[in-house]
C-alpha cells in the first residue's frame, strides 16, 4: 500500500471520527468539564477564605488541574475516541464493505490509530488550553509555571491520552464492541488500576500496570492514589511499549481473522 493511500485512509477514518458528534462532544465534556469545575470550586474557596485556600491558578493550580486533565479525565476521552475508532466500522456494519474493496485488513486496522490519536490530541489540546487559561487567570499574584513547565505538562498530557487511546483502539477491535470496550477500559482506568497500584503486597509486579508506567513520566507531583510504584525510565518505557504492542497486535489479529 502506498503512502498516499495510507494518508487517504487515515483522512477517511478522521472524517468518521470527527463527524461522530456524540463521541466528540462527550470527549470534550470529559476533558474540559472537570478542569472547569476544578477552577470554579478552587476560585470560590479562595474567594471565601484566602487564608485557608490558595489561589485556584498559579503553579500549584496548574499542577492540580494537570492531574485532573492528564491523569484522570483526559485518558477517559482517549478511551471514548479509541473505542469508537476501533469498533466503529464493525458496529455500523461497514467493515465488510471495506473488506470487499480488497484492501488489506491490517491496513484497515492500522490507519484507525493515527486518526484516533489526532482526534484525542485535539480534545486534549482544548483541555490543556483551559488548564493554561485557568492557571494564569486565577493566579492572583501567585507564582506561575514557566514555559518549560507548560511544555512538560502539554507533552505529558498528549503522551498519557495518546497511549490510552492506542490501547483502546486495539482493545475495541479485539472485542468488536464499543460498549464492552468502554466498560472494561473505563473500569480498568478508574477502579482496577488505582486499586491494584495501591496494594503494596503486589510488590514490583505493579510496575506492569500501564497507568503506573505512564505516571512515571508525569511532571506533576502525583498523590499516593496515583503513583505508588517507583520504577526507572527504561522500565516505564518498556511497560508502555509492551502494552501498546500487545493491544495493537491483538486488535490487528482479530481484524485480520474475524468473519466480516
Amino acid at each position: 500500500m502506498s503512502a498516499a493511500i495510507a494518508v487517504r485512509m487515515v483522512g477517511a477514518d478522521l472524517l468518521k471520527l470527527r463527524k461522530k458528534l456524540g463521541t466528540v462532544i462527550w470527549s470534550l465534556v470529559l476533558a474540559l468539564g472537570p478542569v472547569l469545575i476544578f477552577f470554579i470550586v478552587r476560585a470560590a474557596q479562595h474567594g471565601s477564605n484566602p487564608a485557608e485556600h490558595g489561589p485556584a491558578g498559579g503553579t500549584e493550580g496548574f499542577m492540580d488541574s494537570m492531574r485532573v486533565l492528564a491523569v484522570l479525565f483526559g485518558p477517559l476521552a482517549g478511551i471514548m475516541i479509541g473505542a469508537e475508532a476501533g469498533a466503529g466500522d464493525v458496529a455500523s456494519g461497514v467493515f465488510r464493505d471495506l473488506v470487499v474493496t480488497g484492501r488489506s485488513r491490517l491496513a484497515l486496522f492500522f490507519t484507525r490509530v493515527p486518526a484516533a490519536i489526532a482526534v484525542t490530541w485535539l480534545v486534549t489540546l482544548a483541555g490543556f488550553a483551559l488548564v493554561v487559561a485557568g492557571t494564569f487567570a486565577f493566579a492572583s499574584g501567585a507564582e506561575t509555571p514557566t514555559v518549560a513547565d507548560l511544555a512538560n505538562g502539554l507533552a505529558f498530557s498528549l503522551f498519557s491520552t495518546g497511549v490510552i487511546c492506542i490501547v483502546a483502539v486495539g482493545f475495541a477491535a479485539l472485542t468488536s464492541s464499543r460498549p464492552a470496550a468502554l466498560t472494561v477500559l473505563i473500569g480498568w482506568h478508574l477502579v482496577a488500576s488505582p486499586i491494584l497500584g495501591s496494594i503494596g503486597s503486589l510488590g514490583s509486579s505493579r510496575k506492569l500496570i500501564l497507568d503506573q508506567a505512564i505516571n512515571h513520566f508525569s511532571p506533576v507531583r502525583l498523590g499516593d492514589h496515583n503513583a505508588n510504584v517507583a520504577m526507572g525510565a527504561t522500565t516505564a518505557t518498556i511497560v508502555v511499549v509492551a502494552w501498546i504492542a500487545l493491544f495493537l497486535a491483538l486488535g490487528a489479529w482479530r481484524t485480520r481473522t474475524m468473519d466480516a
Binding site: A4, I5, R8, M9, G11, A12, L15, K16, V94, D97, L98, T101, R103, L108
Partner: peptide, 8 residues
C-alpha cells in the same frame, strides 16, 4: 470513505 480505501 470507500473511495479513500480503493484509490484516488
Amino acid at each position: 470513505i470507500v473511495a479513500a480505501v480503493r484509490g484516488p
